[in-house]
Design a protein around this nucleic acid. Structure first.
Lengths: 334, 334
DNA sequence: CTGAAAGCGCTTACAG
DNA sequence: CTGAAAGCGCTTACAG
């Protein structure tokens, strides 16, 4: 492996000067710059970023904690993060933290990340998060005081959908939720739905909101199962909100098996706007925002805060979302 | 940040001894082991893996080159890689290489990966691959001589599907392919289809095989578009093979818009067995294998070859696959 | 069995 | 403007 030493010898300068050339210091004599560039070119020299990291005490490394790789919603955001980060010389590494042994948390701490984005919904071990703070890693989606917090503002699209359903004469409107009641009420969708349903003339029977207690199932499975329960409880339901598009997909399948058509018999609304949603049968109405751009923005905060910890104080970042209407909604059957 | 030095001082030994304890060297005096462990515990010491990497000349780092994050097929394989790698103290980093600037290739080379898996279908710059070889990185899916090559053996499931279609009286059988003709013939699906279609009594009209020339479109879009072309050329088609399940999803949508039902009017067969396929309407018949286990296996080869370059000679690794029948196939309409 | 020392490939004051 | 040197946090022969 070629090192800075080889380059220095070939260019007839010291390693320090090679470093200064590589880091574009303006004070290097132009003819030395020239000689060094030539030596780099001839030797095909590629610097060792890890050695550089060690000397500079910054790894240019962002981590992402994830429950599973196959979530298309996160995949898009992550791609946004990765692309922005790469342009700014940062590397992005995903850590899958389902059923994780303590060993894995320890391994993350050993890598000395500069930033870490948390996409887990369940809680992380306290010893782990404490260590992250001790290392002064820039955090996203941990606790309110010690990290950026991302909150999607779902209120406008929720109200829009509720209005559309009201206009369509829907009264039995259900919600299939992948988490528990606490998270539902904490989410702006749940909050809006519960607070506003009466105003929009919906049935306020709480059994129209179904929660999930099996964290092992995929979203599609949960949607399928909860929709089955819903049809037992309320065969006369005419509209269903779902936590996300995958839940909606499972619900669509269950409706179809029950001989119910969407949207003629039951309207279905998803969330997240995954690319596939356009190809569901029928194409799913959903709640959207630019996930790639959002990912890039996350990366930007992190990188700017790494460069200057005072640049962005930790705060809640609100993401605006909007309703994306597709064919899965129709007026209620008489 | 606590370092080995702090631990050494607290334990009253040298840094070398701390290292020996951490690396479980058997020759350390038990009471020293005890003292060092205690100091580590009390100080909450977590070693710096990057410093360790630098000294050992191995980063325990595997890279994955990808076109996009949102491909669910790759996501499952990658999760298998990540999980196996993590258990063996390796970190896995994804590099998104669509429309990549030379800068990004350079950045990868700077990180001194120990292994790199290539999931790109288009060619990578020669200077890049040459540098990877120079660095003696363990490679997967590059060229035959210098890397492991993964080949899925699709012949048995292809023959099974062709047999089923034959039994169902299908004669007009099409193939929607996301790549060009060269790749189609190089793939065992294309090869089997072209070589065996006559034997199974299928129409051998080459215009039943549709290729894609727009690399910017997603699989669903390609499936939708090619299926449209197919219906124009051959309104009497009764069965369609697709490159993957997402192409099949696009095709299903196009069929539905044309007023054709699947499987009553047209049978559709996908490939890759993505989790969502079970929830398509109808559930899609596909070709499957255990992608998580496969990913783990890839990681295992790489890690073993990093430890001992002679352990696994570079060779082609054949992955067995099988047909997974679902409701998207029925006998041909009379 | 252990400590002192050299080394991994960089960066960065600092003296000149 | 530049080179020599110290330092980043580890590992690993090697002398004792």
């Amino acid at each position: 492996m070629i090192t800075r030493n080889d380059v220095a010898k070939r260019a007839g300068v010291s390693v320090g000067t090679v470093s200064n050339v590589m880091n574009n210091k303006s004070f290097v004599k132009p003819e030395h710059v020239e000689k060094v560039r030539k030596a780099i070119e001839e030797l095909n020299y590629i610097p060792d970023f890890n050695a550089k990291s060690m000397a500079r005490r910054c790894n240019n490394h962002i981590g992402i904690a994830l429950y599973e790789m196959t979530n298309p919603y996160h995949a898009e955001i992550i791609q946004g993060i990765e692309e922005y980060a790469a342009e700014h010389n940062f590397m992005t590494t995903i850590f899958v933290l389902n059923n994780s042994s303590p060993h894995k948390y320890h391994a993350i701490c050993e890598r000395r990340l500069d930033g870490l984005v948390n996409f887990m919904t369940n809680d992380l071990p306290h010893a782990f998060t404490a260590e992250l703070k001790r290392q002064k890693i820039v955090l996203v989606n941990f606790t309110a005081e010690d990290s950026f917090l991302i909150v999607n503002d779902y209120t406008p699209p929720m109200l829009e959908y509720m209005h559309i359903l009201q206009e369509g004469g829907h009264r039995k409107v259900a919600y299939l939720w992948t988490g528990d009641e606490v998270r539902f009420r904490a989410d702006m969708r749940g909050k809006t739905f519960l607070e506003e349903r009466e105003k929009y003339g919906f049935d306020t029977d709480d059994s129209l909101v179904l929660f999930n207690d099996d964290v092992m199932q995929t979203s599609e499975q949960v949607g399928y199962r909860l929709c089955g329960q819903l049809l037992e409880r309320h065969p006369d339901v005419t509209a269903v909100f779902c936590t996300n598009d995958l839940v909606a997909l499972g619900a669509l399948r269950r409706l179809s098996e029950a001989g119910l058509r969407c949207p003629e018999d039951v309207s279905v609304i998803g969330c997240d706007d995954i690319a596939l949603g356009e190809y569901f049968n029928p194409p799913i109405s959903t709640i959207s925002f630019d996930k790639r751009r959002h990912g890039a923005e996350i990366a930007q905060w992190i990188i700017e805060k790494i460069a200057d910890p005072k640049s962005h104080p930790y705060q809640t970042m609100v993401v605006s979302t909007y309703a994306k209407l597709r064919k899965s909604i129709a007026p209620a059957k008489k």
